[in-house]
Amino acid sequence: MTFLRRPSVRCFLVVTLAVYLLFSPLLAVFEMGWPNVLALLPLSVTAFGCCVWVLRGRDERRNAWLLAAVLTGGLVLHVISRYSGMGFLYFVVFAAPFRTRFWPAVLLVTADLAGTALSSLMIGMQGWEVGGNLLGLTYIAVLVFLVRHARTTREHAAALAEARAGEAVLAERARLAREVHDILAHSQSAQIVHLEGARLLLERGEDPAAALDRVNRAVRLARAGLEETRRALDALRGQELPLAERLELLAVEFRSVTGSSCAVSVTGDLGSLEAGARLAVARTAQEALTNARRHAPGASVSVVLRRVGRWCELEVRDTGGPPGPAMSAVSPVSPVSPVSPGSPGSPGSSAGGYGLVGMRERAELIGGSLAARPGAEGFEVLLRVPA
């Protein structure tokens, strides 16, 4: 189609169209004699001017009226001199579907066909001549409407593809935001806690050994965060660790940082889990352990991953920490509905509330659900994803 946009080609097409539209009226003038010039030539020029205006204009409503004028001029010319207005009648059929809206185009083409038949019968044309003209106009009309439909379908497909590309970009941004939160907030929040504790111990002149222990724990967390970043990059490259091994690494990290117990239990066949479900399980376990470490210090945690029918369930429970503002701020949550992110500092809302948002988004994107609520002793998180 780029060939048709070349200036030389467009100029040739315009000249050809002008000759086609004016040839029959001019020929009729010469055949009928110069006295008929005042009857035919002004009407032909007017209809031709409307055709040019239609080709140059983009106003669909105005084009409909201009094409109606072209149709009227073509029919009058056809009645005055047989076939002298057929070029204008064909122009209406060609231009209406592309220069006006659908229903005005249908009305114009229908009026063109009906007017051609009636005017041809009025001037005494034979039935086979009338039928041939109608057959040609009908064939062109069907072809042009099919081309219009194909172009409209292509435009809609392009718009849909562009919209889907935009949605994909937004989804990718959301995914990267969750990954950044899950990787960085998990390790850096605990590092800040230990480094802040070490700073306070040193400022107060208290036990240097305790401050050094805090610094060593922060170093281990930094290394664990770097290792988690590497694991995330490996997962993007298709070199993902088995889910049970990832959960065990998280448990080892939790035990080394807090000194509390963290038991991991994996049961059932989990080999059919998709990549999105595996990532949701790993990130939810990571976030739940981070929240337990922050809001329930000294609590023991259990991580249970099991296959239940068509679902895979991850349950993370802690035994609860010492009472404080963070724990008292928790309100009971229905066990069947996902919890809304609370205010910063409430359990499960690390990094200003984005922890629960990320876990819930991961679950919903793959058709799962997330429930976070106070348990019998501490806090529990239950994730269900399709297996």
Rank of each mutant, 00 (worst) to 15 (best):
L314F: 01
L134F: 10
F102V: 13
G353Q: 02
L160M: 05
V147G: 09
S350V: 13
Y20M: 08
P242G: 07
W53E: 07
A387Q: 00
R293G: 05
E228T: 14
I123N: 09
H186V: 04
F88N: 12
L365G: 03
Y354M: 13
A47P: 04
P297M: 14
R294D: 09
L249S: 00
F102L: 15
I192E: 12
T153V: 08
A157C: 00
A224R: 13
E248G: 01
S331Q: 12
F98N: 05
F3L: 15
A168D: 14
G271W: 00
N133C: 09
V316F: 02
S189E: 14
G57C: 03
G271N: 07
E167Q: 15
L249Q: 07
G324Q: 08
G268N: 05
F145N: 05
P97Y: 13
P242Q: 04
P104C: 11
D182Q: 10
G342N: 01
G276K: 07
V106N: 05
A18I: 00
R231N: 07
A222M: 13
L184V: 15
F23W: 14
L314I: 10
A326V: 07
L107W: 15
V76I: 14
V193C: 08
A158N: 05
V29T: 05
L305R: 05
A218H: 10
P297G: 06
G259V: 01
S331A: 15
D234Q: 07
R6V: 07
R294W: 13
T110E: 09
W65A: 11
G320H: 03
F23R: 09
A190D: 15
E129N: 09
D59M: 00
R231K: 08
G352I: 02
R223G: 08
V144E: 10
S343W: 05
E60K: 04
T46S: 09
L370T: 02
L250R: 00
S302M: 04
G205Q: 11
F379G: 00
M122H: 12
A171K: 13
L75T: 04
S265K: 10
P35F: 01
G127R: 12
D59T: 00
S331L: 11
L200A: 15
S120A: 15
F102D: 04
S44N: 03
S81V: 02
P297Y: 11
L273C: 04
C11H: 13
L195T: 10
G352W: 08
Y83Q: 13
R307G: 13
V130C: 09
M86I: 09
V301A: 06
E162N: 06
P35E: 00
R10Y: 02
V180T: 06
G166T: 07
G33W: 05
E179A: 13
G132T: 11
P374K: 12
L195S: 04
G131W: 13
R58A: 06
A141L: 06
G225W: 12
M125W: 12
G321H: 08
I183H: 07
W128P: 01
A282H: 08
G49A: 12
A69Q: 10
N63F: 01
P242V: 06
P374V: 01
V169C: 05
L67C: 00
E203I: 09
L170F: 09
S261W: 10
L243R: 03
S349A: 15
L249R: 14
E361N: 11
P323W: 01
L4M: 08
A280V: 14
V92K: 08
A198W: 06
S24C: 00
L184K: 09
